[in-house]
Design a protein around this nucleic acid. Structure first.
Lengths: 185, 185
DNA sequence: AATTTTTTTAGTAGCAGATGATAAGAGTAA
DNA sequence: TTACTCTTATCATCTGCTACTAAAAAAATT
């Protein structure tokens, strides 16, 4: 009985921490009908830090990247890069990138990954996107990991023609043709 | 001397709290070259809560609306909308939308405004972007207010052909042609 | 049933980062 | 000098813990 109820309590404790991390040991104790010491032991076993530390972590994180995705210069993570030639980046589609109703990814995130990869590939200190032809082939959903491949197909004066193809698994979900213009001095 | 330096300290204290709220009274004391008690008095006078309370507030807020701006289904603010025909939205280019180095707006924000307006204009419960042809005509900078106008130019089966033109003042900075596909049932 | 093991409870000492109150110096201005 | 503001010092107290020891209670094993 105790064993089962302990496991159960641990499960509940973990999920409880995720949704409402601002609870004292005392409150948890009364909530679960056990003593404070038991809660402390549980936290030890599960590696859950104390209330103040939990709060601090949430606050720190929120403070570190106040606008989440929006404020980074790069969307996605670059895996491979050959300046002026090719590049590969990945992006995990998280819950904040999808429409609430349909759980389909908002197009601009996929665009952002491709566009920022194209920018990274360009061998120029500063650049802007001039023209893009893009095609969303298949709707992308939460949890999918997107892999974008960029390839510079032509370079002319300060213009770069770049192709980006984005896959989710084996499926091609998106492709884009960019003309990027480098800004010099 | 004391009076001036007190006012000054109060000013600095307030601005200090805004940018880095995770500082103890002790750290503040050494930083300002005064005693802890003075810092406490200052906080009292200025109505600044203690470290733990400050941290809690930041965490609470972050927890209440987890992804703020990034998770909204709409980018920009709709001023006018005629379903299935036209729509207008505005977007103020803020510091978190621009590249750190150049202060030029990242393309996907402009795209996002246009794309979400195009979605809004469509007279369909759910839709995805199929194809887009887009052109960034002039780089946009921080502080500019963008006005996007969308127009449905053709409707065929479950496809909508939508033009979006974005201006900053009198200048056209961006235009896009979208083919949106409505998802039914 | 007796024994071993696991789980839970209790209690003490101590810490960080405060509050609140009270008293005492320091600086300046009339 | 006196009056005044500003600053510092000191002490008791609080919350929500950690770290540790000890023991009671429950469950599992023999």
């Amino acid at each position: 009985m105790a064993r089962q109820s302990k496991k159960l309590r641990h499960e509940q404790l973990k999920s409880c921490m995720e949704c409402s991390p601002f609870v004292t040991d005392e409150e948890l104790a009364t909530q679960f009908g056990v003593s404070i010491q038991t809660i402390r032991l549980d936290r030890m076993e599960l590696g859950i830090p104390e209330l103040r530390e939990r709060t601090r972590q949430v606050a720190q994180e929120a403070h570190a990247n106040p606008k989440a995705i929006a404020s980074q210069d790069m969307t996605g993570e670059i895996l491979d890069l050959e300046l002026g030639r090719t590049g590969i980046s990945t992006l995990l589609v998280t819950s904040d990138m999808v429409f609430e109703k349909t759980h389909v990814a908002r197009g601009h995130h996929i665009f952002a990954q491709a566009n920022s990869l194209a920018l990274a590939v360009m061998d120029a200190p500063a650049a802007v996107t001039g023209v893009a032809n893009i095609k969303f082939k298949i709707p992308v959903r939460e949890g999918e990991r997107l892999v974008a491949k960029a390839e510079v197909v032509r370079t002319r004066a300060n213009k770069n023609f770049i192709w980006v193809k984005t896959r989710s698994g084996a499926q091609e979900v998106f492709r884009a043709k960019f003309i990027m213009v480098s800004l010099e001095g």
